[in-house]
Design a protein around this nucleic acid. Structure first.
Lengths: 351, 351
DNA sequence: TTGTACGCGTTATCAA
DNA sequence: TTGATAACGCGTACAA
């Protein structure tokens, strides 16, 4: 004797493929085939299924599907900082690519905190995401979590802030080259004493931009004055206090120009410079990095580098999707080519 | 004779609760109980399970759990515009609340497009999200999708841009009151001819801010001049062209002050005003709405209203979680109280 | 305290 | 072209 099942015991609202099948007196498989647009279904059956599915208000349950197909069609995104305008723009790029391929975005904010980032990775794994897009939190010291992810063959692509040599692809911009370029731009203006507000060394962009800065000076036979390289963070406050300490140097040691690790740091520095009564760029020139929305609006519009966040997002998402589709996809470090945006803070007559 | 099952046929990486159980020669249920911190498990069993789970690198499969518990611990967020700094800040608030309660965020960007928003809702339902946070796209005309959601008893909370009277809660700011307040502020400055750059009427904030504007004039016995109410959108371009057409009015019909629907529109307007050779606020005063990051940086810093996006996000998320926990939670329209931020574009000597 | 049987909603497999 | 059956990994209900 067959056991009695408790079907239909749930809320009335949830209609399943089984309900559609029962309604038509056919098997669930046929319904499944129709809904997945598989071949080998008679045209009239297909028609009937479509119609009653519609009529009953059937909504496929992706969770159940994922369980059996072992594919969630979801990719996880971990962002360290959602307030900084760069990341929302990256997300737009990611969203746009992902939207057109049927994947969904599970979004987590690490708030620049290592342990929160760790938890985020764990959560994404529990949710069986098909891949992860990650921009490292500033405070991350250990790469063991990334290693585990890669060992488990979970596709991982870094963007903007990368951990290299681990076997994960990475999409960034040509930081070294552009930092060199911007520094050189300062040198061409004739400035000799050039300072660098350096970002955290934990993060690749911090290291790379410092490297580019050094390269420019060395290649132009200027001595690198270590007193003029000073650690800031990526925010206004760090830029401000770093600049304040630079301005406390003896008059003849003062920098004639400042290369900041990014625009927020540059804003902080500009504020400090103005507060101390110096003019920009007549007394001290400033360049930033990232083309923040506020950059054109500072009292002296800020010369900076377009970071092309939208393109970074697109490329990172595309690369991740390729890793997902093909486990043998080549690990690559992609560089988005960026361009300087010349305004007036460097000494040019830009916009 | 028992059938042979194909266990362990998957990739080696994925270790399940069954694997942990087999390793210890106990049942899956005991493992499950330990991992869910249920009582009624012997301490040493608990210990053993924890250890081997750790050793094997077990990661619980939320997908499988969701299927049986009918709870995904995921909430969907639909945002119309990720570039505008308001929404990233709202998301931070949402993220913060949600993070502390173990829910995840499935994030979709509707790009101000009605059909994309529709698809987004469908996707979220397929993913069995426990609830939805939604800010309407500007172009949305039909509320039938919201209705269906509410009929299906899927918790829904609007934020910032609300569809009212449908039975869904809504978290916004006191738009009417603040638009009235800001307009009154202009009136107190002695300005008589006051224009309004109005947002789309499809969106509640567009309608509400217009209403507040009208109220202020009426309550102060000023006639509402319909020629000075002109449709912009929520972006720079709309504000710019709306202002241009205002500036083409005969000299004596020109507005002495402009109340813009939001800051980007105000920026566009300010640009138009400056290009035509007028001064702000000496010739034409301007106030905005939303406290964009750029507002302090315009040539004349912009007087505006703090929209408290972070708090909007927090409140909306909290309300949604309450709706999820309790199907009888009261439907409410929550208003976050905002404050004017006085700078100089209105004629004050602000910062 | 622990284990067994079953079902969540779907797809894969193989047989009809 | 269609259907029956067994998974997917886990939790609930009940039995031992």
């Amino acid at each position: 004797m067959k056991k009695e099942h408790k079907k239909y015991s749930g809320r009335p609202g949830r209609v399943t493929a089984t309900d559609v099948a029962k309604e038509l007196g056919i098997s669930v498989m046929t319904v499944s085939r129709v809904l997945n647009k598989k071949p080998n279904v008679a045209d009239d059956t297909r028609e009937k299924v479509m119609q009653t599915a519609m009529r009953l208000g059937y909504i496929p349950n992706r969770i159940a599907r994922s369980l059996v197909t072992r594919k969630s069609y979801t990719i996880g995104v971990i962002v360290p900082e959602i307030t900084h305008s760069f990341f929302p723009d990256v997300i737009r790029g990611i969203e746009e690519v992902v939207y057109n391929t049927g994947y969904n975005l599970l979004f987590i904010h690490s708030a620049e905190d290592e342990s929160r980032e760790k938890k985020a990775i764990q959560t994404l794994e529990e949710n069986q995401v098909d891949g992860i897009l990650l921009s490292m939190a500033q405070t991350v010291k250990k790469y063991s979590f990334y290693r585990k992810l890669i060992e488990n063959r979970k596709p991982l692509v870094f963007f903007d802030r990368c951990a290299k040599r681990l076997g994960a692809s990475c999409v960034g911009i040509n930081d070294v080259e552009m930092a060199r370029h911007m520094t050189e731009h300062m040198i061409h203006h004739g400035y000799k004493r050039i300072a660098h507000l350096q970002g955290s060394k934990n993060v690749s962009i911090g290291r790379d931009r410092l490297l580019g800065f050094r390269k420019a000076l060395e290649e132009n036979n200027l001595t690198v004055n270590e007193d003029l390289i000073i650690e800031s963070d990526f925010h206004e406050k760090g830029g401000y206090s770093a600049m304040i300490s630079l301005l406390e140097l003896p008059k003849k040691m003062l920098p004639r120009a400042v290369v900041a690790v990014n625009d927020p740091a540059a804003f902080g520095a500009m504020q400090a410079i103005l507060e101390k009564g110096y003019r920009i760029p007549e007394d001290i020139a400033v360049v930033g990095f990232s083309d923040d929305v506020r950059a054109p609006f500072t009292p002296t519009p800020l010369t900076t580098v377009n970071q092309r966040p939208y393109d970074v997002g697109c490329k990172a998402a595309q690369k991740l999707l390729r890793h997902i589709d093909n486990p043998n996809e080549r690990v690559e470090y992609l560089m988005i080519k960026t361009e300087p945006i010349i305004r007036r803070s460097c000494g040019c007559n830009g916009t």
